[in-house]
């Protein structure tokens, strides 16, 4: 999105003003003079350009090892080209399809269970008229967003793990305990719960802002027309939030192939790869751990390209629907 925003094809009308304010009109400035004038700016951008070249652009080119039988000892120049072999063996690998399936399942589960919660939470918080209580709850529920996944998983282990608070409670009350932290069957639900605990509060910010932007006059007219709380929510609040809900929903869809990598990596050993292998962990274990550089890079490249396509399509959709939403409002 930012690409469209920040480098507009059509210059805003005042764009020329920045240049003409100097003593010399820049349009007729010879190249060398311009270079002399702007060289400090170029020097300033240089560190960023170097970092991006080294760690984004050259590695992007380095993705060609997806088409190589890459041997680290031989390097890029010494390794053999193998054409599409890595992709063929990738598609024949059962584990790859399994990882893809797990990834999509987790994405779906999070869309279903995680996504509505910040919306509802924001609507609820907005009905709280006590400023102090509201502020307090807000600062409390934003906090987990800033904690590392190691801490989050440790907290969950302490509360819901085998020797945790919940199980202790179950045992002392004569119920049978269960360890959700190492149960492959419920692992995806556990991931979603953790994601909700960590980020649902933080996610309310953007929806609260959307609600705050709704014209209060609409509520007044609704009340005069005899609308109760539920109808006001349905006919005023929800339509007001619609554009931002659709935007975020579509962006999340565009990001379908990415599910909490650090979060899953931390807990993969506890439940085994059957339940926990996703595309990113598949790449990590095949490449860095097992040394199948070619296949792992092929998987990563494929994921990158599909994600890019999804993001572009989602962007287009969001743009279209966003416009529509504005008109409807």
């Amino acid at each position: 999105m930012a690409v469209n925003q920040a480098s507009p094809r059509v210059k805003p009308p005042h764009a020329g003003k920045l240049q003409t304010s100097g003593e010399t009109p820049p349009r007729k400035m010879p190249f060398l003079a311009k270079l002399w004038r702007d060289s400090p700016l170029l020097v300033m951008v240089a560190p960023t350009v170097i970092v991006l070249l080294l760690f984004t652009y050259i590695p992007l080119l380095g993705s060609v090892i997806a088409f190589m039988d890459y041997v680290p000892f031989l390097g890029f120049t010494g390794s053999d080209w193998v054409g599409w072999d890595n992709f063929t063996s990738l598609f024949q690998d059962q584990a790859f399809w399994h990882a893809l399936w797990n990834t999509l399942q987790i994405t779906f589960l999070q869309l279903l269970l995680y996504f509505p919660i910040p919306v509802l939470l924001a609507v609820f918080l907005n009905t709280v008229a006590m400023p102090l209580a509201k502020k307090f709850v807000q600062s409390v529920i934003y906090l987990p967003h800033f904690l590392s996944w190691v801490i989050i998983v440790a907290l969950f282990q302490q509360i819901a793990g085998g020797a945790g608070v919940v199980n202790r409670f179950l045992i002392t009350h004569g119920l049978s305990p269960f360890d959700v932290m190492s149960d492959p069957g419920t692992f995806k639900l556990l991931l979603t719960t953790q994601a909700i605990w960590k980020d649902a509060g933080w996610g309310t910010i953007i929806f609260l802002a959307a609600i705050a932007a709704i014209d209060q006059g609409l509520y007044e007219s609704a009340v005069i027309d005899g609308a109760g709380a539920w109808r006001r929510f349905w006919h005023v609040t929800l339509p007001g939030m619609r554009p931002i809900i659709i935007l975020l929903l579509i962006l999340r869809l565009g990001d379908s192939l990415t599910v909490g990598f650090e979060q899953i990596l931390l807990q993969r050993d506890a439940v085994g790869p059957g339940a926990a292998e996703v595309l990113d962990t598949y790449v990590y274990y095949n490449g860095v751990i097992d040394g199948s550089w070619g296949t792992a890079t092929a998987a990563g490249l494929l994921k990158g390209i599909v994600s890019l396509l999804l993001v572009l399509v989602a962007n287009k959709l969001a743009h279209r629907l966003g416009e529509e939403g504005v008109y409807q409002r």
Binding site: V3, A6, S7, V49, P59, G62, S63, G287, W293, T297
Partner: peptide, 24 residues
């Protein structure tokens, strides 16, 4: 309008859309 500004900005912003994988 400064020298190479558009090009360099695009160079930076493209990284928002597409990143190299973990392995490279």
């Amino acid at each position: 309008g400064s020298l190479f500004q558009r090009g360099l900005l695009t160079f930076v912003l493209i990284t928002l859309l597409f990143g190299p994988g973990m392995i490279p």
